[in-house]
Design a protein around this nucleic acid. Structure first.
Lengths: 86, 86
DNA sequence: CCATTTTATTGTGTATACACAACAGCTCGA
DNA sequence: TCGAGCTGTTGTGTATACACAATAAAATGG
């Protein structure tokens, strides 16, 4: 079983399923099936979705599930200083 | 069309297709089809393959193809100092 | 309150990702 | 030289990821 955070990223961007579907070239229902975990998408579709949100595929999809948003954000905050080198 | 570097990572690890297939739970022929680009794998299989090699999915699969190994390694060398913070 | 949008579900059809089997060519070590 | 392992291909079968249509429920905004 593969978990994903599509709904999270889509809602944060203020996109409807129809919007996201258009952005990656699939039907709106397909997005629904993906978000509910009914479909295990192709890596091509996964790459397109990740590209829309500007994140790596591994940020959108995971084999083991994702920790809470709070945990994800907090743990990432510990790496903030690395970005300051850019 | 989705490009991948499966052959590159597999050969570098000294794995046969049979070995890699066993590691991710598919048939050896499936690995062959993936390496030749005949199959567009599921994101679940992509995640398993990436996990075997210890790299992100985006390192193994790409929508736009990969630059030469020389380019990949050289451009990564420019980021070496970021790792020294760990 | 009504109208529009968004979402959920169900159905049908098609393309393809897989499994599995078979075989042929290649490489390499004994 | 032979045999074993790796690879490439071809074929058949099945499950499922998609497209598309229809409908209904829910949410949202006027």
């Amino acid at each position: 079983m593969v978990h994903n955070q599509i709904t999270l990223f889509r809602v944060e961007r203020g996109l409807s399923r129809k919007d996201l579907a258009a952005a990656v070239g699939v039907n709106p229902q397909t997005i629904g099936f993906l978000e509910r975990g009914t479909y295990n998408p192709s890596v091509e579709l996964a790459l397109k979705l990740a590209a829309v949100f500007g994140v790596p595929v591994d940020t959108l999809f995971s084999l083991n599930g994702f920790p809470s948003l709070a945990t994800q954000i907090a743990s990432n905050a510990n790496r903030q200083k690395e970005f300051e080198d850019d």
